[in-house]
Design a protein around this nucleic acid. Sequence first.
DNA 1: ATGAAAGCGCTAACAC
DNA 2: GTGTTAGCGCTTTCAT
Lengths: 345, 345
Amino acid sequence: MPDRQIHSIAEIAQICGVSKATVSRVINNNPKGVSAETRERVLRAIRELNYRPNALARSIAVSRSNMIGLVVPDVGNLFYPQIIRGVTDYADSKGYAVLVGNSDYNPEREAQQLLSMVDKRVDGIILCSGVSNRDFLLDFRRYNVALGLIGRSFDTSVSNASITGDNVRGGYKSAAYLIRGGHRRIAYVEGNPDVSGSRERLEGYRQAHTAAGLPVYQELLLSGEYSIQYGRLAADQLLNRKIQFDAITTGSDLIAIGMVSQLLQRGVRIPEDVELIGFNNTELASAFHPALSTVSKPHYDMAQYITEQVIRVVEGEQVKLPHTVVEPQLVLRETTLPRPYDNEY
Amino acid sequence: MPDRQIHSIAEIAQICGVSKATVSRVINNNPKGVSAETRERVLRAIRELNYRPNALARSIAVSRSNMIGLVVPDVGNLFYPQIIRGVTDYADSKGYAVLVGNSDYNPEREAQQLLSMVDKRVDGIILCSGVSNRDFLLDFRRYNVALGLIGRSFDTSVSNASITGDNVRGGYKSAAYLIRGGHRRIAYVEGNPDVSGSRERLEGYRQAHTAAGLPVYQELLLSGEYSIQYGRLAADQLLNRKIQFDAITTGSDLIAIGMVSQLLQRGVRIPEDVELIGFNNTELASAFHPALSTVSKPHYDMAQYITEQVIRVVEGEQVKLPHTVVEPQLVLRETTLPRPYDNEY
DNA sequence: ATGAAAGCGCTAACAC
DNA sequence: GTGTTAGCGCTTTCAT
């Protein structure tokens, strides 16, 4: 059985008959201050003993952990893989490890996760469409960790950087497209109503109606959670309560999938009887059958972008465009009827 | 602007006029060794200064980080949310944070991620259906971190615990069901062929054919990657090459979804013309239209389970059932034709 | 080029 | 009940 040891810089130093400082220099391959031959000797010892420098110890010495925290509502939700991948990819490319946590759309849990990451002294945090209120976040800044927001825009004072889709515009575009198609009773089905994105999309939905001089019916406004299951439930509710509707916009592709699935099962034809538009253009939207019409944003890129910004502030670099909002695009597929559309509104 | 400071135990000690040891005692609410009033005084200072103990410093002092590492092939793949959620849930409940990394099905990348977690001195690692070979893993044990494997079974010497579905049985069951349905040219479409699960499922597929006295045709064996996109591609290949097939088993629901999607589009009826069975019973399988018949395993529970085991070894507790394999179940839905089946083989 | 020593923020053994 | 001290594994300043 080989030696099962984690060695320390002191051991290596002793073995090579040099000081810890010297070993430290070669580890961080400090270009100067160590002769070629000692460097070689040290490197050999390191290799032979399979020595791995203790990053934690290093972190406390330099007050820099090279870790960033990522807190999302629910890593189990099929919307997040893109985000997580974007963050891990960029972080990894810059030598940062990423710590993940779930907030479960719960402000207390979210605060808890955020603080737990502070305890671990992450250099920066990426908070995904949080439920935190402005005051908490503002206060949170006292901990002096770089904070990036994705999917939510506050005033700029609460974070170092943020990127989000324009949810109002997104809600507007999908509703407007349906209105233009002649629909007058468009159901709006949202996920968690506490999330700011939900409220913003609803606002867009309202604006589209107002702009067209149409009323908004309270009974057509549903909300629950961002899941396939809830989509099913919502479809059942609409049908069971015999609420009349001729089209649907949703706050998530997952909800959309659940609804389509259930609607179809109950004999409602899509898009002939009911047109429907999802949200987010996840991988699923195009694969689903029928393929979902939806509102698209480049989540992976957005995740990479916010990670870049956060790391920039960590490393003291200039952050250009700290607060960005991206214009969502309507992607028309099979759950809507074709009609001329040129991204004109 | 409020103070933006991270304080240290020394500051708190000084402010309260006590020693660091005392502050340490109250932080770890060491029940004995500090009077009620000093405790109160210290707690107040902590609260007022918003002091957060440095977990990194603590980690190096106690040689325990309360972090566990999770490395999966691709956090962006829709199969992993369940796993990640299972791991984070259990870890969180026990006070552990989780570090995630992608291996991209690449042995070098995987080794890199594993070592990077060693550097961060995670207490344990959960490796998800890795591509590492036995020798590497065996050698890896030198670093003395608890290792749990999910989705892959080696001989027990390379890990402290493991859990996996019985892929051979899974492959067998789906092929056998199709054979029993009278099919004789069953395409087998896999993801990354380097992953052990792929080979095992293929083995099951072979066994089912052998048991029925049927030949296996090389041209019906495809593999690529675990994605919707590859499923589409595979469907096209089969069709374009005019390869005759009357049923399909796949190594992943994602591949299945891609295939169904493309097959339907090209006018192949499912299940009338071609029956198809997915693998893993992800959330998508039941939501998809038509709902996927598939092979099911309780991934979330498995993830929780392996995390529990890993944490047990970290905490020096007994690990019962360290190496577990779970029997997969055939779940029949709409991509297969109904016929009597009682999980009898 | 190399080493000694102090320091990072914490815990723990021991003394009082 | 509380303080002193050494130590965890590293970096870094300052000598030499």
